[in-house]
């Protein structure tokens, strides 16, 4: 799947903000990811050439960041905070629950391609620990029951 004209235009717009096009690397990858969910080798190569970067150096950047997905992910990505405040407030139980419920391991994607389960570092909402982010939505004071209910909203 090659980049769409719209994606190309968007990347071009992003690069205009930077003294060198490479400055837009992370944002361009995220932009591709918004439509394709993950960054394929092909897309990475296409983005690299728009940024005047080699695919290797762009991939070096992509693989550095945990929120750039270089493997397919499900329709929704569940990020479970595993940092200290959430840990104190019981995030391990949440993780165990989700793995059982979704029948996946960390990093896995459900058989129906609906969810990918990932741990994430502190979401900056420690006062609402434990926290979970599903796609772009932050959920606080999460319990297994509340989470099950919330996940119903993501088809």
């Amino acid at each position: 799947m090659a980049l769409t004209d719209q994606q190309i235009a968007e990347i071009t717009r992003l690069t205009s903000h930077y003294r060198q096009k490479s400055g837009a690397a992370v944002e361009a990858l995220k932009m591709v990811q918004r439509t394709s969910r993950w960054v394929s080798d092909e897309d990475l190569g296409a983005v690299a050439s728009l940024l005047d970067m080699s695919p290797d150096s762009l991939d070096g950047v992509a693989t550095f960041h945990n929120l750039i997905y270089r493997q397919p992910v499900g329709r929704h990505v569940i990020l479970v905070c595993d940092s200290v405040s959430c840990w104190i407030m019981g995030c391990r139980l949440l993780g165990d629950h989700l793995r059982r419920q979704l029948e996946v391991q960390w990093g896995g994607t459900t058989a129906d391609d609906r969810f990918t389960l990932l741990p994430v570092v502190c979401l900056g909402a420690c006062d609402h620990a434990p926290t979970v982010m599903v796609d772009e939505d932050l959920h606080g004071e999460v319990t297994p029951a509340k989470l099950d209910q919330a996940l119903e909203g993501y088809r």
Binding site: S54, D56, D59, G60, T63, F64
Partner: peptide, 14 residues
């Protein structure tokens, strides 16, 4: 990459 200008080699992940 830096000294010899090679484009097809880099460091990945973290």
């Amino acid at each position: 990459r830096d000294y010899a200008g090679g484009q097809d080699f880099d460091v990945f992940a973290s």
